[in-house]
Amino acid sequence: MAGGSSINVLEQFELHPVLGGFGEALRFSQAPVFMIVACVIVLAFLHYGMKPAAVVPGRLQAAAEVCYEFVRNLAVDTIGPEGVAFFPFIFALFFFILAGNYLGLLPYSYTFTSHIAVTFAMAMMVFILSVIVSLKVQGFKFFAHFMPPGAPVALAPLLVPIEILSFLSRPVSLSIRLFANMVAGHVMFDIFASFVIMLAGLGFFGDVLAVGPLVINIALMGLELLVGVLQAYVFAILTCIYLREAVSH
């Protein structure tokens, strides 16, 4: 945040050990804490939502059912009938990212999806899963995908490396997309919030001018709410697309 007259917008992404020396020894920072909070919120939402198990659902149960059916339809419509097996994974991925993105919008919280290490780890998990499923389902035919069908054999030395590079870039693009969106949003928040504080220290005219960045920050919150769900959706649907390619012959 603002330190004196300078702005350190990257300070919010720093990791600090929690639980004192115990947390330091276990390398337990605020990121895993908010990961646990995110998981607990999602599981509690499903638990308390589905507690009545009513035929005619209440609001919370209807919301839980809508979430279930939304991700299930996403998985099955994109991957195909095999998507049923991947549905819990897609659900976990989508809501882990969504809860992480939204938790980061709360004051004094931490956005674990703003760390490239976390997003790259998730992207690699998807990538490795899709490769394993591809090898299991397609066998060595999987490698035939690196040579586009119908292309002249003479172009193979050029096309195959391009295709391999394109394939290997998937986890990079998947992780950087989420990371960059989250970082950009939070940096913008921090910059405009710092403007508010800095302008407020300039007296009456500063107070009046500070309304501008404050309004922008409110608008940014709306945008970040949209970006948060959109990035979770993009991550989930790209995972579904990679898995569809993996299970198709």
Binding site: S29, P88, F89, F91, A92, F112, V118
Partner: peptide, 29 residues
């Protein structure tokens, strides 16, 4: 070390989250 630590913790937490969803929460829905 906290950066790599969050990935290791995250992997464990996500695995637990996935297993809890697959084995308990989602079948209820």
């Amino acid at each position: 070390p906290l950066l790599t630590g969050q990935v290791v913790w995250g992997a464990g937490i996500f695995l637990f989250f996935y297993l809890a969803l697959r084995g308990w929460a989602l079948p209820r829905v």
